[in-house]
Design a protein around this nucleic acid. Structure first.
Lengths: 346, 346
DNA sequence: ACGCGTTACTAACACGTGTTAGTAGTATAG
DNA sequence: CTATACTACTAACACGTGTTAGTAACGCGT
């Protein structure tokens, strides 16, 4: 039915009355090549006329560049459903990558069953470089990649490796969040993690919480810790469980705004008020957070910036520019709104 | 430093003491091929031993299949930042696509400057098929693709074309949403669109709103219509503007939950209450909507299902199975919560 | 007339795979 | 004993491009 046979560079060459080599030289604007201006125009005209677009596969095969960057997420698909952080990353990544004429391929890897599945993606040279968001301690593939010197940039960090990374300081940010609550007079502060502790960020944030309490001379209580799983549902469930336990707390640090959204609803449904009964501090500063009721006090993670820097860095690596700052750390200040009960000055 | 030279099928052939053809036949499990079991095992062992992974580009070149599906979004990157619908799509798409051994490439196209940029993606055979989310009336590239019989599945609909599509009935859903408000006694109902009217879904939803009013014998008032732009910010701004105008309304239909989130905050900041002063009905039923305060009454769009069906359909098209139902329409019932002020029976 | 350098190209190889056509070797039928 | 059929492979081409090495044509100095 269709099949108007592909237009190849040979067709362009024939139309312009030159060789295929010349077509390639002209269209790729090769520097050293001496081509008469008149010929050049003739080739360009012929290419436009025929609607010639170079074949990506052929080009990738010979140039050994797929012109594709992979975004690897070690999650189950359903953990992506309500991920407000991911969309911010996409904003940043797509903007930068597009500008460089590259494409973004998104690969999701089930952390339980096939942690290392993305290695095949790389071996097949489907992608030129990887941005990995949310590294996990148990990701052995990442260590393998380090040996192979494959271009990788982490959005997050993985101890014991020397991968390029762009991140915030999760531990310090959490400390600041919790210290803010301590400063408001709270002594019993619960915590709900953003994800399970295989994720380095989740562990770091929990440690930050613990450090803040210890520094204030308070003892840790496992009963005050709940576990989230990226989603509002998990926050709802975790908060419900905390409220059902035999512990009292007047504040909670929730290491993800998405999770905090559910937790806040749970508090509300139990007839309690934020911040009067329970003060809340979140983490991420998603676009939605300022529209919550009350607006959520949270750690402001510059997600779009992180993604921009990570992709910019990766693109430089692909161009062969080495020896950059290996670990970029962006600022993540506390954004005080109303959920923590602090008096806003202005 | 690195460069352990790629392992090719020739290397496997040498190691196994057979020809490259045999390697190909074995590893691709070609049906008609007669291969002795012992040889087969030898090849498989050699391949595993050497860590052989076929080169994606070479394979794509010869097989004319990139094994990649493109997800095209006609938006600016910053319009993706807080798109809770997109993450649901990714959930559905990634699940299905992964299972079929394909990959997902995500392409974002600025609707103002380069509407048709994704045509190049297709011409270059970078992708085998396209899922296009949120078609626009002014998308001429889509009409071109129809002539070329390139595999396309729309998440949404585009009049005057016969592309495969998976969608809900936006117009009817909106009518139902607005009729619900009418049934609660509201006579002055505002509307905020989910996006500008170039998007077919935005227009359809607005028409549904208008049809409901007209069917109830009410007159339309342009002053009661505001325009959103995917984001909570836009909903906040639009609602603020509506509240500042010289019109009264006791309810609002907001054609996107994401936008409704901002609108609800605006209402709150003006000292008004939902649903007592202004009843609210949204559209999408994002995961976050049930956690809003009050929980949002909204049209329940089965986003994950839409994505699953769209990708399943596209994959079938790629396999050459034609003649399927061209336009799949899924149900999108009203999900009554509290923001509309209806008494909940249960 | 000859060598030499420059200009404006082109022939031919390489990239790594899938696949078609073919070929020795052995079993089976007449 | 010969013709046929089948088994278990392999040689060689094709996919469409980037690039290296090379070549005619021409001007120029001696």
């Amino acid at each position: 039915m269709m099949n108007a046979r592909r237009v190849t560079s040979q067709d362009v060459a024939d139309a312009a009355g030159v060789s295929r080599t010349t077509v390639s030289l002209v269209l790729n604007k090769v520097q050293g090549a001496k081509i008469r201006e008149e010929t050049r125009q003739r080739v360009i005209a012929a290419a436009r006329e025929l609607g010639y677009v170079p074949d990506a596969a052929a080009r990738a095969l010979v140039s050994r560049r797929a012109q594709i960057i992979g975004l690897v997420l070690t999650r189950r698909p359903d953990q992506v459903t309500s991920d407000g952080f991911l969309t911010q990353l996409l904003d940043g990544l797509l903007g930068v990558i597009k500008q460089s004429g590259l494409r973004l391929l998104i690969e999701i890897v089930d952390p339980e069953h096939q942690k290392e599945a993305y290695l095949e993606l790389i071996r097949a040279k489907h992608i030129d470089g990887v941005i990995l968001s949310g590294p996990r301690y148990d990701d052995d593939a990442l260590r393998t990649l380090e040996e192979e010197a494959f271009p990788v940039v982490l959005l997050g960090q993985l101890p014991d490796t020397n991968h390029y990374s762009v991140d915030i300081n999760n531990r310090v940010a959490s400390r600041i969040a919790v210290e803010h609550l301590l400063g408001l007079g709270h002594k019993e502060i619960a915590c709900i993690t953003n994800a399970d502790l295989s994720y380095t960020a989740a562990t770091e944030r929990l440690i930050g919480y613990q450090e803040a309490l210890e520094a204030a001379g308070l003892s840790l209580n496992d009963e005050l810790v709940g576990y989230g799983d990226f989603s509002p549902e998990s926050g709802y469930a975790a908060m419900m469980e905390l409220l059902g336990r035999d512990v009292r707390f007047t504040a909670a640090f929730i290491a993800s705004d998405e999770v905090a959204l559910g937790a806040q609803a749970a508090i509300r449904e139990c007839g309690l008020r934020v911040p009067d009964d329970i003060a809340l501090v979140g983490f991420d500063d998603l676009p939605l957070s300022r529209y919550m009721d009350p607006p959520l006090t949270t750690i402001s993670v510059p997600a779009v910036q992180l993604a921009r820097q990570a992709s910019t860095l990766l693109i430089k690596l692909l161009k062969g520019e080495k020896f950059y700052e290996r670990h970029v750390v962006l600022k993540s200040p506390l954004h005080v709104r109303e959920s923590c009960g602090a008096k806003l000055s202005n």
